[in-house]
Amino acid sequence: MKCSLTNISLPEYNNCEYFNRLNEIGIKGIEVATSRAWPDSLHGVSQENIKHYRQLADHAGLSIVGLHSLLYGLEDLALFGDETQFYKTLEYFKLLSNVCSELGGKSLVFGSGRNKGDISYSNALDRTYKFLEFLIPSLEKDGVYICFEPLSSNDSDFINTVSESLEIVKYCSSPHVQVQLDVKAIIENNKLSEDLITESETYLKHVHVNTPGLGIVGRKYTNEHNTISSFLNGIGYDGFLTIEQIMINQNDIMTPITESFSFVNNVYK
């Protein structure tokens, strides 16, 4: 398994300054929240900015894994809003697919920002299937896949379990709709079992290694991390593991990252 880091751990709009230092400690990839990389991702990121970001990652020996935090800070976009919001969100996801591809990434992790509110679960599924029907051609063109990240009920009221994510994947029957696991959500849902991992084996493309509160990984829940690592090894998972934690200390960026990486590198082998 290869270890990557989300750029929400790095200073806003100044991610690239730390790329070489990340490689030096052993991190092999970056997962990008566009809102953390550039001031205005909603109205399109210039080709020049994309090229520059990718070149600096390449020169540091880092792969761009993909994008996440897709709707962070974008209050006007919503999967379950009105018709105008729905189509604006669809066009934005098409843009993200292209940005991801141009960066060299493969995955769009769709986590928070998808609350259904008063919409029934059945209607929310129908809306999701319609959204994906329109989005999949862009994903195919760009060579990108989208993962509906199961989250705890603290973070979302739609897609809280791996089984619910798999329901979407199997309905779409497209290699561009896959599954992502989030360790924090597994812990918060108290759903840790080998079946949870094995049922997602065929479709599992990415894993977020994190902890409730998105703090330093490994200070708590060490037993859970060891168990999940064992289960992932049991299915032969060899993709990226992204350490997902917030920027802990603006005056000391690398120490918290190094602590989390050391734990993940020792446990997830």
Rank of each mutant, 00 (worst) to 15 (best):
N23E: 08
I25A: 06
I25P: 05
G26N: 09
K28I: 06
K28N: 07
E31G: 08
E31Q: 11
V32P: 02
V32D: 00
A33V: 15
T34Y: 06
T34H: 02
T34A: 14
S35Y: 13
A37N: 07
A37Q: 11
W38R: 10
P39L: 03
P39S: 10
D40R: 03
D40V: 10
D40F: 01
S41L: 08
L42N: 00
V45Y: 01
S46K: 04
S46T: 14
Q47L: 14
Q47H: 13
N49Q: 15
I50H: 00
I50Q: 02
R54T: 08
L56S: 05
A57C: 10
H59D: 15
H59F: 07
H59R: 13
H59Y: 06
A60P: 04
G61P: 06
G61H: 06
G61R: 00
G61V: 05
G61I: 07
L62N: 01
S63A: 15
S63G: 07
I64K: 03
V65A: 12
G66H: 03
L67C: 13
L67G: 02
L67N: 07
H68W: 01
S69L: 12
S69D: 11
E75N: 14
E75F: 08
D76K: 12
L77S: 02
A78C: 13
A78F: 03
L79W: 04
G81Y: 02
G81F: 01
D82E: 03
T84Y: 04
T84Q: 12
Q85K: 07
Y87M: 02
Y87L: 06
Y87V: 07
K88P: 01
K88D: 10
T89H: 03
T89M: 04
L90E: 05
E91A: 13
E91Y: 09
F93N: 01
K94F: 05
L95G: 10
L96Y: 02
L96G: 02
S97M: 10
N98P: 04
C100N: 10
C100E: 09
E102M: 14
L103F: 04
L103I: 10
L103S: 06
G105T: 06
V109Q: 01
F110Q: 09
G111I: 10
R114H: 04
N115H: 11
N115Y: 03
N115D: 15
K116Q: 13
K116I: 12
G117H: 06
G117D: 06
D118I: 13
I119M: 14
I119H: 04
I119V: 13
I119P: 06
S120T: 15
S120D: 11
Y121I: 11
S122I: 11
A124Y: 04
L125W: 02
L125Y: 13
D126F: 06
D126M: 13
D126S: 13
R127C: 04
Y129R: 08
Y129M: 11
Y129G: 11
Y129S: 09
F131W: 09
L132N: 01
E133N: 10
E133D: 15
I136V: 15
P137Y: 00
L139C: 11
E140I: 12
K141H: 14
D142S: 12
D142W: 03
V144R: 00
Y145I: 14
I146V: 14
